[in-house]
Design a protein around this nucleic acid. Sequence first.
DNA 1: ATGAAAGCGCTAACAT
DNA 2: ATGTTAGCGCTTTCAT
Lengths: 341, 341
Amino acid sequence: MAVNIHDVAHRAEVSITTVSHVLSGRGRVSAATQEKVRRAVEELGYQANIHAQRLASQRSRTLAFQIASFTESPNSSSLIPNSNYFLEVLNAAASASTEMEYVLLILSAQAQPSILDRYGIAGVLIIDPRGDEPIFQTETNPNWLIVTNGRVAGNESHIGTVDNDHRRTTRETLEHLSDQGYQNPALLTTDLGRSYTNDVAHEYRDWCQENGREPLVIELEEPPMQETAANAVRMLLDRDHPPDAVITSAEDLALGALHEAQAHGLVVPRDLGIVSVVDSSVLLLTTPTISAVFLDPEQIGKTAISLLISAIDGESTFPQSVITPSSLRIRESTNRKGLTA
Amino acid sequence: MAVNIHDVAHRAEVSITTVSHVLSGRGRVSAATQEKVRRAVEELGYQANIHAQRLASQRSRTLAFQIASFTESPNSSSLIPNSNYFLEVLNAAASASTEMEYVLLILSAQAQPSILDRYGIAGVLIIDPRGDEPIFQTETNPNWLIVTNGRVAGNESHIGTVDNDHRRTTRETLEHLSDQGYQNPALLTTDLGRSYTNDVAHEYRDWCQENGREPLVIELEEPPMQETAANAVRMLLDRDHPPDAVITSAEDLALGALHEAQAHGLVVPRDLGIVSVVDSSVLLLTTPTISAVFLDPEQIGKTAISLLISAIDGESTFPQSVITPSSLRIRESTNRKGLTA
DNA sequence: ATGAAAGCGCTAACAT
DNA sequence: ATGTTAGCGCTTTCAT
């Protein structure tokens, strides 16, 4: 059907080994022969069969991408939740993979390790793991390497972490709120089992202690939804001493908080400050716009894939931990003093 | 390294042919032998090597997914634009593929046909094509089948279309606007070369003619952005007889239109009605919420993949055209008379 | 009902 | 510098 390596070899009047050598850059082939081979490849429009290459070379050049999402129920089968952050990490990871001639397989959150064996997958990128994902549960030394976005407890094949300095940006956020005159920020978060929510919560508690504030952490069920956030905010506002600011661990929680605050007749940012620890394009659509921490998902996806590939190729040493720059973006929802930033 | 078919055959005391037969369901194997084989598979945790299967069977079980996006410039390398619609089509297509034991490769908008040969790709799903995408440009009968979301001019390998009845919903939208007392709706659209924008524009013009209105179609450059929409709306409002409603072909255009209208001190829906022909979760976040046509991207992705796979398997006849149900969702931005829907 | 054997298209170790 | 050859792990035709 399609033209194969024999056709090329025949046309170039060389052996298939030579063709293979020319195309892979291995072995030594004279310039003249190389030219002959290249011309034959060109004329025939030859494309190496990738399945044969993978079988023969025993290298799959396939990576897997998993968003270690929310519920355990297999019915929530959406591979990529509707969040700007996830989409941008995926876009960057897919582009980086393609550039390196790797294929990126998108795994469901419930995917079992066996699928990795089946595809001969060499590396896995897991976003926001808790550490109890099926992929981690292999007793024997598995055949794949793992890089995570977010920290996770020790595992032999876990060879890299790409993360942000959430403690630093959380502190920056708290100081910003303080500057704006907010006295009692509360923290609205999902599952503290993820390292980023955990980091935020820790820093928040530390800051409260240092500043003589009573910490107020509401841990919500996953997935983060506007409605659950709204319920939580309703509760918070009913307290004797309601918070005057809310920090949320996800965009949808911030949206829900804003909605509920406004339903209560509160003016944001005057009566309540709102800031999300994860930025998203939707936070610019609300009135007021919502302050958030920009985590640079593009950088994260790109970095994670290159960590993975260099580990697969046996370059550099592991485990590695990369911290990606992040920064607070102050918008209207916490800009009580009318800064013009 | 990993356990292979010989290991299983040895353990079950049968030939590898028998193992293959049992696993694929072909040939006839006695119940007793089947049981032996299955037990061996179970005990060894055998997973067939997928690359070997593909090479031997000459079937790649690989599909490609492409969003035939916006610009021709290869620098806009984002594979999946930040739009709810695309994300949901992709999620559904990926899930459906996985269910059928197919792999779905995400192609960039600039991907060349050669990549399809390389992977032995059997089918391609293209979202919102204009018809001039590289994948269509093969003189000789190519080795893959194409299903599109949106119509496209004849091509031998184009064996299916999944679409909505955009003309019907556009008419429904125009009648709704009319019911709400809007007299002069304008159409804000991107590239009319796509079938859905084309359908909308046609129906809009027909309706204008039937109702003695002057059609006002603004065709914007792609990609659809809030800013370009805002500029267009600014122009529209400066006219002698500005429109009192705007229909947009994309969520971001609606967002931009709303923003600009409000910046001009207009009250939506009172002074200007806004409705998007493509629904998105972000249209619920604005104040007011924005009316839109729900296209059911999940259904579209799912249907497209099953069309593709049944074509690959040689079932049913082609070409096929499937129309997926869609409906107008009336929200605040066009609810001038204070309906309580 | 089961098995032997010939590929699938390539890589890579080993000649020459 | 170039070629021979033995696989990679499976499917599938053809015997038996």
